[in-house]
Computed example of a mutant assay.
Amino acid sequence: MNSDQLEGKWKQVKGKFKQKYGDLTDDDLKYSEGKFDEMMGRLQEKTGKTKEELKAEIDSW
């Protein structure tokens, strides 16, 4: 799955991330056009997962 596909799917999976990782805030999950990598970096910090692990998790939903 490429970044464009991840961005398109993000609206569907951000609620699941909030449920699974309770310490994530709306600001952590906020997607702004052209800032998807920045948001993924915040998720990496909060979850301790690599970008590839997060992409695989998003892809599995």
Rank of each mutant, 00 (worst) to 15 (best):
K14T: 08
R42V: 12
G34P: 09
G34S: 11
D23T: 13
Y31T: 02
K55S: 11
F17R: 01
S60V: 09
D28I: 08
T47H: 04
S32R: 14
M39V: 12
K20T: 05
E7T: 15
D26T: 08
Q19P: 00
K18M: 03
M1S: 15
D23R: 09
S3T: 15
D23C: 05
D59I: 09
L43K: 02
D26S: 09
L6N: 06
V13E: 00
E38N: 12
K18Q: 03
W61R: 09
K9Q: 15
K18R: 08
F17K: 01
T25K: 07
G41K: 11
D4K: 15
A56Q: 13
M40K: 11
Q44D: 07
V13H: 00
Y21Q: 02
G8Y: 13
V13Q: 01
K9T: 13
K18T: 02
E7N: 13
K51I: 04
D4M: 14
E52C: 02
K55Q: 14
Q12Y: 01
F17I: 01
L43D: 01
G34N: 11
L43Q: 02
E33I: 08
E38Q: 14
K49N: 08
D4R: 15
N2Y: 10
W10N: 01
L54G: 06
S32G: 09
Q44M: 14
Y31L: 15
Q5R: 15
Q12D: 10
Q12N: 11
T50H: 02
D37M: 10
Q5L: 15
F36D: 09
V13A: 03
D23W: 04
K16T: 00
T25Y: 05
L43W: 05
K35M: 11
D28R: 09
E53R: 05
S32Q: 14
K9Y: 12
G48A: 06
E53Q: 14
E52I: 05
G41C: 07
G48D: 03
E52L: 06
G15E: 02
L43P: 00
G34Y: 10
W61I: 14
E7S: 13
K30H: 10
Y31R: 13
E57Q: 13
K49S: 06
E52M: 05
G48K: 04
K55I: 11
L24V: 01
W10R: 01
W61H: 12
M40Y: 02
D28G: 01
E38G: 10
M39A: 10
K49Q: 12
K46F: 04
K9P: 07
L24Q: 02
K20L: 07
W10C: 00
D4N: 15
L24N: 00
D23A: 10
K35L: 12
E52G: 05
W10Q: 03
N2F: 09
V13R: 00
T50K: 04
K18W: 00
W10E: 03
L54E: 03
M39Q: 11
E53M: 07
D26L: 05
K55V: 13
T25M: 07
T47F: 05
E53A: 11
G15D: 05
K46M: 06
G41A: 10
K49G: 01
K49E: 10
D27W: 04
K20V: 03
